[in-house]
Design a protein around this nucleic acid. Sequence first.
DNA 1: TTGCAATAGATGTATATACATCTATCAGCG
DNA 2: CGCTGATAGATGTATATACATCTATTGCAA
Lengths: 125, 125
Amino acid sequence: MVTQFYDSVLRPSGLRVTQFTLLQALNHASGISQKQLAEWLEIDSTTLTRTLAFMRRKGWLRSETGTDRRELRLFLTAAGQGQYKRVLPYWQSAQRRLRQALGEANWIQVIDAAVRTAGVTPKPD
Amino acid sequence: MVTQFYDSVLRPSGLRVTQFTLLQALNHASGISQKQLAEWLEIDSTTLTRTLAFMRRKGWLRSETGTDRRELRLFLTAAGQGQYKRVLPYWQSAQRRLRQALGEANWIQVIDAAVRTAGVTPKPD
DNA sequence: TTGCAATAGATGTATATACATCTATCAGCG
DNA sequence: CGCTGATAGATGTATATACATCTATTGCAA
């Protein structure tokens, strides 16, 4: 339900939740390694490899080899930052609507339950 | 978070949430048409076509042409019913853990918010 | 009765997800 | 140094999801 709701609100923007989440994460943590990003977002590293490939095709992402040459350091391109800014209002709208539907106290308790039950770590915003 | 949590609890069973949900729905509504099933579960009809193809390969599903020959009426095979009974405890465990983590009052309000916000219809346990 | 719009489901194409496994690189010990 | 085990990321394979479009059937109105 949650994923479908966010996707439905984002649909007019042309992005999906995953893509927006990655833009947002990279906007906040420019130069992060792929491994760290996967851990922070709690997504499988192979899923990340493939989603990043998509973003590279779109021209939203660039990457550099790290000091440790096994690592990739990830950055948004100007186009990627533009996408993020363009789509942010859609995401904020979805966020607001869910928060309002649940009420602030319930919202907080749901996040808290997610942490306790599924080990999810809250993300900024 | 919710999808990943249910999937993680179901993982030892070898099924995913989608597959279990379909077994459950067909166990409760034997002979339902594909269209009705898609509407009830609020999943895209093309997604359903492909997930049902998977279940047919596993031997869990059989189907008959309806009176309206455009329609397919869907039934679980004995093997499908067996799978459902086998995996039900995993799903109940996930359900219990989430309910407990949220608390009964919050659980109800989350379901209610889902209905109001995303138009989701509650399904029987 | 026939002709056409509407409906059920399937198919083409594309993104999302994740387990198993592979390659390249690194770190540490002998 | 030079193995050897560990780590970062990529690839093989398989399921999940959904928009656009196609085919087969149906219902209805001229």
